[in-house]
Design a protein around this nucleic acid. Sequence first.
DNA 1: CATTTATTGCAACATAGTTGCAATAATTTA
DNA 2: TAAATTATTGCAACTATGTTGCAATAAATG
Lengths: 129, 129
Amino acid sequence: MTKQVRNTAAKTAVMEMLSQSSTALSHGEIYQSLAETCDRVTVYRILDRLIEEGVAHRIALSDGTVKYALCEQCGDGHHHAHSHLHFNCVLCGGVSCLEVEIPHVQLPRKYKMHDVSLVVNGLCAACNS
Amino acid sequence: MTKQVRNTAAKTAVMEMLSQSSTALSHGEIYQSLAETCDRVTVYRILDRLIEEGVAHRIALSDGTVKYALCEQCGDGHHHAHSHLHFNCVLCGGVSCLEVEIPHVQLPRKYKMHDVSLVVNGLCAACNS
DNA sequence: CATTTATTGCAACATAGTTGCAATAATTTA
DNA sequence: TAAATTATTGCAACTATGTTGCAATAAATG
Ligand SMILES: [Mn+2]
Ligand SMILES: [Mn+2]
Ligand SMILES: [Zn+2]
Ligand SMILES: [Zn+2]
């Protein structure tokens, strides 16, 4: 039997927060906004669980920073595809999932591609004015 | 006047190591191989300096891990371009610069692209047999 | 309400990266 | 070659990030 899922106040709060946010959030940002209401470790575990449940996904920026975003923000809800790029605004720091397909990349002979991570750094629409 | 550059034993050792290695190396890997011969912090500072000098570059993998590689390995030596992709083998863990141009990506209106980071995870030629 | 067990808090640990400062040593200059 | 300059290093101390074990807590189910 598959492990059952329980909805807790902390988990709901994290999801609510990710859902409200226009930008992907780091563990630290989430933990701080939840100020005192739950433990650091709990936030890590909730995020891990959300990812395992397919509700959220991890985004590693080009400097190594890790952010989290809900998956609905990055697909049409119907077919869930993770082959989209992530945009990191160097001005406001915002990180967002763009509905842009990752172009096909040709690898050298014998290489086998599993998945691709593409992060674009630049100015977002709001900051580029 | 621009800050002068000094070649020290530690710096030479790090460069030698990166130059010999077929894969990009993390700070930890470099530090361990240098075992006891110099401080942890020194390795960080040497790597920062190599990057500032344009000799090496940083590679952030899709899980947030950071690796370092010499720049000569990732260009033809003549024109130095950093718009190439990095390959991370999920089997041997090797990380290498591939001489493959990053395909053009079309961003939504008003977005301004500065630079792109593209990491492909999969099986390298050696592991894919 | 009682049972089951997923989730949490806490302590403790591991790794990654940064900063200040005094000591050291690579270059430059005399 | 010896002295002066200052880039580099070692060390201590600190912050940030992430993980694990275990006992206590609290969802869900009946
Ligand atoms: Mn996304
Ligand atoms: Mn490279
Ligand atoms: Zn912006
Ligand atoms: Zn391999």
